[in-house]
Structures are given as C-alpha cells and as structure tokens.
Design a protein around this nucleic acid. Structure first.
Lengths: 244, 244
DNA sequence: GTGCAGAAATTGGTTGGACCATTGGACCAC
DNA sequence: GTGGTCCAATGGTCCAACCAATTTCTGCAC
C-alpha cells in the first residue's frame, strides 16, 4: 500500500488558521514591510479567538523573522508574506570557532560562484551599470580607508546576488551574514582580513560584464579562496599565540 | 565607538531564558532526538514561570523544527540542540510552480557542485567505498524499476554531502528536499524525470574516486543541467497542453 | 504659541486558573 | 485475542487581570 495514500487528518489548527487569516489581511490591506499590523487584542476580537492563540501564532511568525514585536508600540511586518510561502528553518550546530567559519565559507563559496555565473548570464545593461557603481564605491572606500570596507564590500556582493535573478541566494547568504556579522568585522584578529580578496571584485565584475559565466564562476572561487587563506592564517596565528 | 561594545541590556527575556534553561536540561539529561521532554506544567513549575510563557518558548522551538508537540501525549525532541545553535529561518516566497522549482535547482546546483568538489578532496578510502555502495544500489534500482529510483538516488547524494565533511550542505539540501518532496516525486507530470541524469551519478563517483575536485564539480554541474532540461521540457509540455 | 514634564492611554509580556480535546494505558466483557 | 469503556495525563484554548515599555495627550510655565 502506498504510505502516502492515507495521510493523517487535520482536525484542529487554530493558530494556523489565525496565520492564514493574517496572510489574507496583509494582502487585502497591501501592508508593506515596516508597517504595523493590528494589535493582539483587536485580532483576537475580530478572529473570535483568544488573545493567547493570537500570541502563539504571532510567536511563530516572529520566530520565522516575518514580524517584529515591540512592547508598548505594536507588531510590525518585517518581510513580505504570501499565501504560498515556504518556511525552511535551519538550525546549525556549532559556534563561532574556526571550523564553523570555515564551513560557512564553503557554503558561501558554493553560492557565490553560482550566483556570479548566473549573474553573468542574466545581467541587463542596467544591472551591470549598477554593479559597476557598487564596485566603484567599494574601491573608493578601500583606498581612502585602506581596507576594511566591509559595508561597501557587502553591498557589492548583494548586488551580484540580486542580479542573479534568484532571491534564494540573497536570502540564504543574508541570513548567514547576519549570524556571523561580528566575525566578518573582526575575524580572529586578522587586521587586514579581506585585503587579498580586493582585486577579485573587479575581475568578477569584468567577467560578468563580458557575459562570461564560467569566468565569473572561476573568479568568485578565487575570491573565496583568498578569504579562506586569510582565515587559515588567522587561525594559525591564534594557535601560535596560545602556545606562548 | 564600537557599536558592539555596548549591547542593549536585557531587562526581560523570559521565554529566551526558558529556552536556555531547556537547552541546559537537554544536555544534562543527554536527551536524544525522539525522546520526550517534561510536560509544560512541570516545566512551568520548575522554572517558576507561567505555563503560558513555557508554551511561547516551546512554540518558538516548534517553529524551528527542534521539537514536536503531540496533544495528549507530550512534547518530543526532534533534533539535537546545543548552546551555540544558530537559527537561520528562510521563508521562500512562491509556491510549487516552475519558477520556484527552477530557483531551488539553482541553489542545489551551487551546493551540489561544491559538495562534490570537497568530497573529491577529502574522501577517505572508506568514504569512497560507501559512495560506491550507494551508487550500486541506485543503479540496481534504476535497472530493475527502469527509472524513478528517487529514494536510492537521494541516498547517493546524501552520502556525497556527508563525505564533503561540511554538515551544512546536508542540512540545507535536506530542508529543501523535504519541502519539495512531492515535486521531486512527480515533477510536472514528466514521467521519466531524472532519466537523463542517471549516467552522471557514476561519472561524479569516478571523479571523486580519482580525487579530482574540478572534475567532480564539472560532472555535478552537468547532472543538474540535465534535471533543469527535464524541468524545462515539462514546463513546455504543460504550457502546450494548457493551450489546447 | 512653545516647550516640556507628567499623567493617561495603548500595547506587548506575564500570570494563574479553568476547561476542552486527544492520547494512551488499564481494565473489563465477550 | 478483540473490542469496548473508563480514566488520568498532556497539549490546546480561553478568560481576566496585572506588569512593563511605549506612545500620546494634557496642562502648566514661559
């Protein structure tokens, strides 16, 4: 017998129903991220459920990053919602040690290479100009501040992800970026972290502008490789200093 | 001044505290996935908080897939927890249409290529033998059932992810696989879906066994390309049939 | 009128207690 | 054994109140 031919039935799902109603409300009112949604008390009254149930539902959304609650102020939409949303909560074991950073970098290498390749395939002239702009800003910041242009660097990469035409790239990387933010800032005490990766930003851009997916992929791989080297150098230095 | 040197204080964070206490409990009791954790009432009493607060905390964990609640039975651990867990909830807009599947495939292509390359770098002799075993099972299933060896196919890929040495690959892909499970089974009505990708499983294995990261990466890219072609064919067929 | 301190209303966070719905085991009749 | 009934345990929901943070309003001094 096919296991799937007799799925478990669904009897009650109050808070799920609340969330579905809320999705409908957001769409009906065309709420944008940042806007405030009705208070818990009003929702409870309108939906004819207890405030407690509303709170459980909102807690779910908060956990998924869809909504932000501010005591005394209200509950605010943080991201666009749609009826056919798919949730993919990932919980990664491991803290901010060398291994975890390395593993994160491997994921980033995978996504970065693919995003650069897709970007080279799909970028319009306007997209290419936009990326060029971000690159200029980044290089400017790099020269004036001599490195540590992490904010502008991030914007350049974000632009590449966006132009790739696949929002999943940006979402996944953004989630990781937020998690490891502190460490991208001061990773293991290596002062010139990311210095070596600088020239590859331009080469990636050039391959994208030349509509060369394979080339863009290769340059992206090189960029991440330099970051990995930096990381290894930092780890080695740490190990050395801890032995003294 | 460094923004991070003065983090906002935590006046109230009851449910977070509950979760932290729960992490401690799980570790202290060495609870394994599948085991039951204390009832909400007991937790509330022990932690000196209201049962409602406990429920909100558990709702968070449930949303993250860490825990499963069964009414009348109890709350069960669904995944390993650790103090330095990192949560990365992703919500993907768009349903199970062609575009979404295509975007998912692009992510998979990125990760698959990288995982195969890492696998080729790091696999031990035992690992290679394990992958060979999965490959044999898959090819066997393919021959006897003439295609549609999705379960065994999945196990082969999982083995590659595992041997890559980076658990993040397996986690991310597993989450996506679960989401799109129904569609990997019967994607857009294409009966021989995945047929064309069959030979590349062996070529990937061969490149891994030969310790050839670049080759493994290239073969993995080819494999996903065939799946993408299948998907496009299916979409075209659908479009055609909807026009009649 | 303007500015500002303090009161008041609003809103999410927490509490305690109650009841409902489901589960799973114990027990019993057949 | 099979099938039923009962019962205690457990998660799900509800209510009413209060706490804490925030926002808004009010009224006074100038």
């Amino acid at each position: 017998m096919d296991q799937n031919s007799l799925p478990p039935i669904q009897t009650t799902a109050r808070d799920d129903a609340v969330l579905k109603a809320l999705v409908g409300f957001v769409r009906a009112e065309a709420l944008q991220p940042g806007e405030r949604l009705p208070t818990e008390r009003i929702l409870a009254e309108r939906l004819k459920v207890s405030r407690n149930t509303v709170r459980e539902a909102l807690t779910r959304w908060e956990g998924l990053g869809l909504v932000e609650r501010r005591q005394g102020s209200g509950t605010y939409l943080k991201a666009a919602v749609s009826p056919d949303m798919l949730h993919m909560p990932l919980t990664l074991a491991g803290g901010n040690d060398f291994t975890s950073l390395m593993q994160t970098l491997e994921i980033r290498r995978a996504l970065e290479a693919e995003a650069a390749a897709l970007c080279a395939e799909r970028a319009s002239q306007a997209d290419i100009a936009e990326i060029a702009r971000k690159l200029d800003v980044m290089e400017q910041a790099f020269r004036t501040r001599d490195g540590m242009s992490s904010e502008e660097d991030w914007e350049f990469h974000q632009a590449v992800y966006r132009v790739s035409g696949n929002p999943l790239f940006e979402q996944i990387i953004a989630a990781m970026h937020e998690l490891f933010h502190r460490f991208w800032e001061h990773p293991l005490g290596v002062r010139d972290f990311g210095h070596a990766s600088f020239p590859y930003h331009r080469t990636i851009y050039e391959r994208i502008a030349a509509r060369d997916p394979q080339g863009a992929r290769a340059e992206a791989l090189k960029l991440i490789a330099t970051v990995e080297d930096d990381l290894k150098r930092g780890a080695a230095k740490l190990k050395l200093s801890s032995q003294t």
